[in-house]
Design a protein around this nucleic acid. Structure first.
Lengths: 119, 119
DNA sequence: GGCATAACCGACCATTCCGCTAGGATTTCC
DNA sequence: GGAAATCCTAGCGGAATGGTCGGTTATGCC
């Protein structure tokens, strides 16, 4: 219950687009079919991705979507952010220096951690 | 939009309890006052924390709550999990080995990533 | 030109979750 | 006995989630 299906669908969508190696655009309907996702819902998601340039669109017959950038230049975080809105966890929840997800629970750290956010 | 206020309130609560160095329990009302949080809402949260043993309670007058374990043995993740429910982001969203939040976007990795979850 | 195809756009809708309140019951200390 | 506190259950308004639907526009192909 941390990421909604939007993020998941979005990633799936991007992955599906990334599979298409030649420049040909992929119709959203084939993505929906492949991933078993509701087409009309995907439309909304892909619209957001287009607005931030993560995908490009080609209208009309034989149109579709393709990645806006080479696949290996796209980070998953971007996709999630574009769909989920600004990610603002809890301020003290930046991945700690060593990569572990837990903030220092010493008295000083706490003082800062508990109050910094609001006042 | 990643963690709800539950997680935040819960952490604040735990921090507040952690401040009390002697074993005396802290009344929820004082926590609510200190942190400017609604008391009756905190009751629900602390109930969950109690069920998983993160806090202990003392009923009756001059009762209250104290940490179920020494403060430095409690990880923030535990608190969040207890309140937010099982954390099940997207399967491929485990913090990557190096600590960076992005899953390998190579064709093989994607194959696994996109389909592993559902089928 | 016409038609199928597909991206676009906006409104709506049911359900669930979030944050919170209310009211009471129970336990404990003085 | 009464105040102080935890405990428990029920509900509620608003927002977000996850969709659907209908229609409009653009484009390739016959």
């Amino acid at each position: 219950m941390l990421f909604s299906t939007r993020a998941e669908y979005g990633v799936r969508l991007m992955v599906e687009l990334g599979r298409q190696e030649d420049g040909a655009p992929v119709a959203l309907s084939t993505v929906a079919e492949n991933e078993r996702l509701p087409l009309s819902y995907l439309e909304h998601l892909v619209a957001k991705l287009r607005k931030v340039g993560l995908v490009e669109s080609q209208r009309g017959a034989h149109g579709g979507y393709r990645l806006g950038r080479p696949a290996d230049e796209i980070e998953m975080l971007e996709v999630v952010q574009a769909l989920e809105g600004a990610i603002a966890p809890m301020e003290c929840f930046h991945p700690a220096p060593e990569g572990k997800v837990s903030c220092s629970h010493e008295t000083d750290g706490d003082q800062a951690c508990a109050t910094k956010l609001l006042w």
